[in-house]
């Protein structure tokens, strides 16, 4: 019986700044197992501890993580450069089950760093674009600098992704939409009976996004959310990530809305 806490060695190959508090890390991990869009890894900084971070790309040559500076472990990560070693264990958790919905329209919704979770779905779909109907990607951020991966947007649109952007606070030369991400639903034209919604972002954003989907008439079991909770073990034994009757680390982080309906949106749960 192997310890679930054993770490793989990861060599940081490249660090790409996304904005002032977000960086993308490309990590070489030997024999990293296959993974699916929406899954996460535990990243370990020697002597400091671990943080759960979603895998932000389907690429297989290097493991990509997009990290926001929020605490002690990420602070240490931010001081790291190419050649530094970190520990990696994973992949963990449920995924966005996009492979089950060939022939469907997709509405993908991301708020802020939530795009890191949704990006692998976009990449997966682009790899087999003809399998899907219309594919919308709705992205909201606090300000234009909060819109991640902007250099990829052109390519995504060329591949048939309907990309819609909005920011809360326009800054600089921003001429696009201003407002919350749910505003963008007015530009979405899909058949609700043949639509799947997938989202990741702050809980309040997801709360209103779920309501939009329900208003549209999308079935509860075809609305998928990625939930975030405190995590220590990632294998369902430390108890920190409990979200009602689920463990976010092993039952989630991706849930169909129908599974968490009675607990989602309840304050301080």
């Amino acid at each position: 019986m192997d310890s679930p806490f054993l770490l793989r060695k990861g060599v940081i190959k490249e660090v790409i700044p996304e904005n002032e508090n977000t960086k993308r890390f490309l990590i070489e991990v030997e024999e990293f197992p296959p993974f699916k869009p929406g899954q996460f890894n535990m990243l370990y900084v020697y002597g400091q501890g671990e943080v759960p971070i979603s895998i932000s790309s389907m690429r297989r040559d290097l493991v990509e993580h997009t990290v926001r500076l929020v605490g002690e472990v990420t602070e240490d990560l931010f001081s790291m450069k190419g050649g530094n070693i970190i520990g990696v264990r994973g992949p963990y958790g449920s995924h966005f089950p996009v492979e089950l919905f060939r022939g469907f329209d997709l509405v993908l919704v991301a708020g802020g760093l939530g795009l890191a979770d949704i990006k692998p779905v976009v990449e997966y779909v682009i790899g087999r674009r003809e399998d899907y109907g219309r594919v919308y990607l709705l992205v909201g951020a606090k300000n234009p600098a909060g819109l991640l991966y902007r250099e990829r947007y052109g390519e995504w649109m060329d591949e048939g992704i309907d990309l819609l952007l909005t920011v809360d606070r326009p800054e600089g030369s921003w001429e696009g939409h201003v407002g919350v991400v749910t505003d963008l639903f007015e530009f979405v034209d899909v058949d609700p009976q043949r639509t799947v919604g997938m989202m990741c972002g702050p809980e309040v954003m997801m709360y209103f996004t779920v309501r939009k989907f329900l208003e549209m008439g999308v079935e509860e079991s075809r609305i998928f959310l990625s939930v975030e909770r405190h995590m220590k073990c990632a294998v369902g034994t430390c108890g920190h990530c409990q979200f009602g009757y689920t463990f976010v680390c092993k039952d989630g982080p991706v849930f169909p809305y129908s599974r968490i309906k009675s607990i989602f949106g309840v304050r301080e749960l």
Partner: peptide, 18 residues
Amino acid sequence: FCYEVVDDITLDGSGSVR
């Protein structure tokens, strides 16, 4: 059963016990 996981690093940094 809930538990937290802590790193206990030696003063000289040569080893850490999780």
